[in-house]
Design a protein around this nucleic acid. Structure first.
Lengths: 222, 222
DNA sequence: AAGCGTCTTCAGGTTGGCTTTAGGCGTCGT
DNA sequence: ACGACGCCTAAAGCCAACCTGAAGACGCTT
């Protein structure tokens, strides 16, 4: 269980880190809002403990930014109980739970465990095109009940087409999506991959769902 | 029916012990948290009655420690009624039921009987992937009926994969989960452990459930 | 001190995905 | 009809990614 603790009071941070480490959590500490936001975006955590009063960027903002970036890691907010900031504000910005200072360590532990158990991970959704299912999390697809393994590049191309099923996607767009921005090789490579995809998802099933639109691009349809 | 009563108030402890004994329970009493934990681990009880406010180690901790040690004896927690979150805390740390002080003796008896009837709910929160069971509490797994011992690191990697079975988990993610945050060694070490895991959970069974997705990561599936 | 088990590094060997190439096919315009 | 163009796809080389056995480093127990 990985925890990110964003807390600027050194003493409290150290105590919590040691305590949680003793409970079996792997704890990283950030000492201000900006660092916290950066660490949260760069690493996968199971839960984030976030103080509200922070230098450089306050907790509410960090929380909101994370949610904007579609990061759904559960967040527990620590609020000072001076009355200005309250529960509603924390929850409004996308926090999952809150705790007023001063708080009991045991309560914090219980809340953390509850959050972790509840989990907050929104999985990337799979896309369905007729009886073809494209599964981003598994880097694979299936036609009916048959699993079809794909290489990363093959998948990237298929995904680009599936996200806009029924529409024509130009070779250039596919290049931009599946290849590095600075790629400047032969655009023919897209054709090569389209060919490979047809051999995997169409030919064995007697289908032809991946169509060429001459002069425009490709279209994937049911 | 063996009951462990962990309660530091001498008067209450004596009353409960006599009362329960009269109902046919065999009652042991511990007067602080540490003794209670020790007795609970050393002897088999059918149910444990655990006060929260205890000298030397509080009830939540006792409860959590027991569960960590894979002791699933039903626990009924006695809470002082001043805490708002006491109920949630008690249940979060692994208790099976709770009762606020002051309470009626008849209610306690009824709850106890219910707990005993329900029995020790062994809920190992283990993850199942086909016929492979990953047991977070025990640092081991089993394929069918065969127990497979794992080292801590092996387990950490397998756990990381099992939690997202069917999905591709990148080497980087596995590194972040199973190793210290500040680890910056060769990512090759993940390969080494995947190799070790295969030798333990796949090869002896003629399976290949731990797959390489070249350029993306690894996938564990049934 | 010695033994054991685990973690980590290293290096040689192998695999397989990415990319390029080139010849063939079909379609469109003149 | 004929060439030009766009597209298809098999083949092959390259190289990064991966596998794995071995051995050193480290810590814990005897």
């Amino acid at each position: 269980m990985r925890v990110l603790l964003v807390e600027d009071e050194k003493r409290l941070a150290r105590l919590l880190k040691e305590g949680l480490a003793g409970e079996g959590f792997a704890v990283d500490v950030a000492h201000d809002g900006r660092d916290g936001l950066w660490m949260a975006t760069e690493n996968p955590y199971d839960v984030i403990v976030l103080d509200v009063m922070l230098p450089r960027m306050n907790g509410y903002t960090v929380c909101a930014r994370l949610r904007d970036a579609e990061n759904w890691t559960p967040i527990l907010v620590l609020t000072a109980k001076d009355g200005v900031h309250d529960e509603a504000e924390a929850l409004d910005t996308g926090a999952d739970d809150f705790l007023s200072k001063p708080f009991s360590y045991v309560v914090l532990l219980a809340r953390l465990r509850a959050l972790v158990r509840r989990g907050g991970t929104a999985r990337p959704a799979s896309i369905t095109v007729g009886d073809l299912t494209v599964d981003p999390a598994g880097l694979r697809c299936r036609r009916g009940e048959v699993d079809i393994p794909l290489t990363p590049k093959e998948f990237a191309v298929l995904h680009g087409l599936a996200r806009r099923q029924g529409e024509v996607v130009s070779k250039r767009e596919l290049l931009a999506q599946a290849w590095d921005f600075s790629y400047d090789g032969d655009p023919n490579i897209v054709e090569v991959y389209v060919s490979a995809l047809r051999r995997k998802i169409d030919s064995p099933f007697g289908r032809s769902s991946l169509l060429t639109v001459r002069g425009a691009g490709y279209r994937l349809e049911a």
